[in-house]
Design a protein around this nucleic acid. Structure first.
Length: 885
RNA sequence: GGGCGAUUAGCUCAGUUGGUAGAGCACUUGCUCGACAAGCAAGGGGUCACUGGUUCAAGUCCAGUAUCGCCCACCA
């Protein structure tokens, strides 16, 4: 046992001061590293491994990170204290598009583009940027007190990690699961790259449906098509109608003349056309619409690309060449109208895809890209969730996950960027090889494209551990134990990690996935830069302290719901930390120099109050632990908060104060000291994963056992400490205290004024009151406490009924009694309502016959108690009337 | 078009197998009594969105309605 440090608590609680002290202390002791790294270490009680969802190198700390990190570190610290060998893997994502955008923007400010630099030099610029600004988020994170093993930090573009990515590409290619093809993809004309389906955000938009007349060749007639994108008509190579549509049956096989362009295009019948939509006739633009692309393939229609990669009309657009797609739309509509081809325009709601990076409207674009065949990869991931080998918390995400996997499309993984893993494919004439190293011989040219960022991060749980090499880390720490992340990346990342886990390691990368709340502002809006509604996390930590921020985020996060955040609420955590600080001060001041660690329980004489707080403590340990195990973090925070504040500070410490006095009985004083210290020590342990800094500080300021709280053991509930009977006894005491305090206030007594109290009740109750008298007196400021065994009662008194016992506060000559009478009437009417409810229940034959016997018994008891209480209140009212009259 | 979630105190939300409605903040009143005014004490405030059903008993289970929010979908 080590002595505390009284000096540490001499000043008021100051988070900044406390929180600057411990991070280096922990880190120097290597406590962030798995225990097994040390020479001759033992495995301990199993392992716990969790990986950070790698933030983008462009990122800085957001409210979302704050919540995620608070939760991950909460679990890691708890598991470490539980004795497990823990590893929290940190690292960052190169974030292809996001990072390239940032650096290009910087170049643009100097009037340069990446093309001015060339590929090599541009990448050098990005690396330079990465070295300078890339680590910001982790520098910020240290302030939060999280405990990743920084010696194992990984980056998705590290040589080893890159090797894993290219290895995977090659392996999938060899298996026939990666292929190259010319298809319609989601194209961002601003980023000038292809995107996956998941990188497109759909927004409901009020658009128009343009009805355009296409003349039928060799006749005066025309067929009217309806479209939401008139500009694509320049690329039309057919018109389709439904084969079942009798209106148009005669037209099939004929040709139409494309307005403005005068190209003859066939009229075909295809089942994809819904006769009920629009006019029932559809223009077919195979190069600019995924549906039309399929239709075109079925009918051998030409694929005519009319835009370039920036969304500007190209040489196939005739007079409209050089126009931006939206300008072209206006001009084309105008030209159609002028020439009499435009039949009508209807308002039409549709959902338009936007680039999730830059919000530019997505263009379906025909191009050569690399794809991953997903159906075979999805199969084991689907089975894993169905069989429960992977569980989601909250569980409803399982449905979302399965729905996506069961309707999965192939994944477009090539990006027309420079920052990323360059596709390991080489071309020479018609030859193509997939190879991580450049092939032997002259004239090979590597594919220009890089891989989707998520094609590297889907390997995160094992590539961070050295896979595909069979490293010691991989053996020790894979699979991981848990994934904690946001539900917004369930498809991007979680589902793909699971697929990759099964494909490349043959097992699930983790058994559990916990989805954190989405942090929104007080009005429920998403936190965003443009709205300016996100508090600056660092400023917040400075203002309230990391402990306060961590605790409050966890205290507020509802399981499975969004978190509506208001900065003011961080006060909850700050005030709580302050409360613990002051409680420590009191305990510290009163426990003296005695070596409490050496005290054995057999040397103590536990009072009812002691047994009560130990029982409550045992319950708190159970509650906190259970709620952590079931990922109900807010409930866990709630449990420790209320135990520490209400039970321990408000009641136990108040009851212990007189027992610490100089003239108190030595054994009793020692007992009160030991229990107060012991329970507070436990509170600090339970609270440490939530508030690491202040708990460490307080723990070391008090007598403690060991090097630091961060590696101390997690408390266990002692069976012998649970005592429901004592808990009931103290509830009785608490109710008496509250009733006396209430009577005092109602009677308008000075707060400091001592009073006399008389209690009447059953012999058992009176015995209990006598045993509890030493605690009762100071809590309720009672001068003389009398138990009335002969049934006597004061004549003029305020009174209340507690569990059937009567508590009297003699008022003779103290106040006018009007207030008191009002209070009694209020109490009585409240009781009357309750009584009516219970009576109704007990009159109900069905209730008596069908409810569980113990429930019926309870109701009967309650009836008796209510009636008795009411009776006593009436007598009190009566006696007041008599005494005043 | 499909799916999911929410609706409980003025606000934000808990409420784990159905059995006397809770917290924080806000509000009212009173407190410089040796840990803490970032505090203590006492209080006020709720037909648990609506309708119906199951049950002895529903905030809790079931069905439907309304409002709000989110996700998915090749919605010319």
């Amino acid at each position: 046992m080590r002595p505390g440090n009284p000096e540490a608590l001499q000043h008021p609680y100051d988070p900044a001061r406390v929180e600057s002290r411990w991070y280096a202390y922990w880190e120097e002791r290597g406590m962030f590293q798995p225990r097994g790294d040390a020479e001759g270490a033992t495995a301990g009680r199993g392992r716990f491994v969790i990986a950070i969802p790698p933030p983008n190198i462009t990122g800085s700390l957001t409210m979302g990170h704050l919540l995620g990190e608070s939760i991950r570190d909460l679990i890691v610290r708890w598991q470490r204290m539980e004795g497990r060998e823990t590893l929290y893997i940190p690292g960052m994502d190169h974030a292809g598009i996001a990072t390239q955008n940032v650096v290009e923007k910087k170049l643009r400010a100097d009037g340069r583009s990446r093309h001015d630099l060339g590929r090599e030099e541009f990448l050098a610029e990005v690396w330079k940027w990465k070295e300078e600004f890339g680590g910001l988020i982790f520098r910020q994170e240290r302030r939060l007190g999280t405990t990743p093993d920084w010696t194992r930090e990984r980056f998705t573009l590290d040589p080893g990690y890159s090797h894993a990515v290219l290895h995977v590409f090659r392996a999938l290619f060899e298996k026939g699961l990666v292929y190259r093809g010319r298809y319609i993809v989601n194209w961002c004309p601003r980023c000038r790259t292809a995107l996956s389906d998941e990188e497109v955000d759909h927004v409901e938009t009020q658009g128009s449906l343009w009805h355009i007349r296409y003349p039928i060749s060799g006749t005066e007639k025309f067929v009217t098509v309806a479209t939401t994108r008139p500009e694509t008509m320049l690329g039309d190579t057919g018109v389709a109608v439904s084969p079942k549509d009798t209106r148009y049956a005669k037209l099939v096989g004929k040709t139409a003349v494309l307005p403005l362009v005068r190209r003859e295009i066939p009229i075909i019948a295809d089942a994809m056309v819904d006769p009920k939509f629009g006019t029932g006739a559809v223009k077919i633009t195979p190069a600019h619409d995924p549906n039309d692309f399929q239709t075109g393939k079925r009918h051998g229609l030409a694929e005519l690309v009319i835009m370039d990669e920036s969304g500007v009309m190209n040489e196939n657009a005739g007079d409209f060449r050089g126009l931006d797609r939206f300008e072209a739309r206006k001009r084309i509509v105008a030209a159609l109208q002028d020439a009499g081809y435009l039949e009508k325009v209807e308002p039409h709601t549709l959902s338009i895809g936007h680039c999730s990076r830059c919000d530019t409207v997505i263009e379906p674009y025909l191009s050569w890209q690399w794809f991953v065949k997903m159906v075979p990869l999805a199969a084991p991931a689907i089975e894993a969730a169905k069989k429960g080998r992977i569980k989601f918390f909250p569980s409803r995400w399982k449905k979302v996950y399965l729905h996506w996997l069961e309707n999965i499309h192939d994944w477009c993984i090539s990006r027309q960027l420079w920052w990323g893993h360059r596709i390991p494919v080489w071309y020479r004439g018609d030859e193509m090889v997939v190879s991580i190293e450049s092939p032997e011989g002259e004239g090979w040219r590597q594919d220009d494209d890089v891989l989707d960022t998520w094609f590297s991060s889907w390997l995160w749980p094992f590539a961070t551990l050295g896979w595909p090499e069979k490293t010691r880390d991989l053996e020790r720490f894979y699979p991981n134990s848990l994934m904690v992340t946001g539900s917004d990346i369930i498809f991007f990342w979680v589902a793909r990690m699971i697929m990759a886990g099964y494909e490349f390691t043959g097992e699930a990368p983790f058994p559990h996935v916990y989805f954190t709340s989405i942090v929104r502002d007080a009005q429920g809006r998403k936190m965003s830069k443009s709205l300016g509604n996100s508090p600056d996390p660092l400023a917040m930590i400075d203002r309230f302290g990391a402990d306060a921020v961590r605790f409050t985020m966890i205290y507020l996060t509802p399981a499975g719901q969004d978190l509506l955040f208001d900065e003011k609420r961080i006060e909850t955590g700050k005030f709580f930390a302050n409360k613990m600080w002051n409680a420590a001060k009191l305990v510290q001041m009163r426990i003296g120099d005695e070596d409490l660690g050496a005290v054995k329980e057999s040397q103590l004489d536990l009072s009812l109050a002691d047994r009560w707080i130990l029982s409550r403590y045992a319950n708190a340990v159970k509650d906190v632990t259970r709620n952590l195990k079931t990922y109900r973090f807010n409930e866990a925070a709630n449990a420790i908060y209320h135990f520490a504040w209400n039970d321990y500070c408000d009641w136990y410490l108040e009851m212990a104060k007189p027992r610490w006095a100089e003239d108190a009985d030595p054994t009793d004083r020692r007992t009160a000291r030991w229990v107060a210290w012991k329970v507070f020590d436990g509170i600090l342990r339970l609270l440490h994963p939530f508030m690491p800094y202040v708990t460490e500080e307080l723990w070391q300021a008090l007598p403690h056992d060991g090097d630091c709280l961060a590696t101390a053991s997690w408390p266990k509930s002692k069976k012998s400490w649970f005592d429901a009977g004592v808990e009931r006894d103290i509830v009785f005491l608490q109710e008496i205290v509250v009733s006396v305090r209430n009577m005092r206030v109602e009677a308008g007594l000075q707060p400091g004024r001592k009073v006399s109290v008389v209690v009447r009740g059953t012999p058992e109750q009176l015995d209990l009151v006598e045993r509890l008298a030493p605690q009762l007196r100071p809590l309720a400021r009672i001068e003389t406490l009398t138990v009335s065994r002969d049934g006597g009662r004061p004549q003029v008194a305020a009174s209340s009924v507690v569990q059937g016992a009567e508590v009297f506060l003699p008022l003779e000559g103290l106040v006018d009694l009007g207030e008191e009478r009002e209070r009694l009437t209020r109490d009585a009417s409240k009781l009357l309502d309750e009584l009516e409810g219970v009576k109704r229940k007990l009159r109900n034959q069905d209730f008596l016959n069908k409810a569980r016997p113990d429930v019926v018994e309870k109701e009967k008891l309650r009836l008796a108690q209510l009636e008795e209480t009411l009776e006593k209140l009436k007598r009190a009212q009566e006696s007041l009337r008599v005494s005043q009259g």
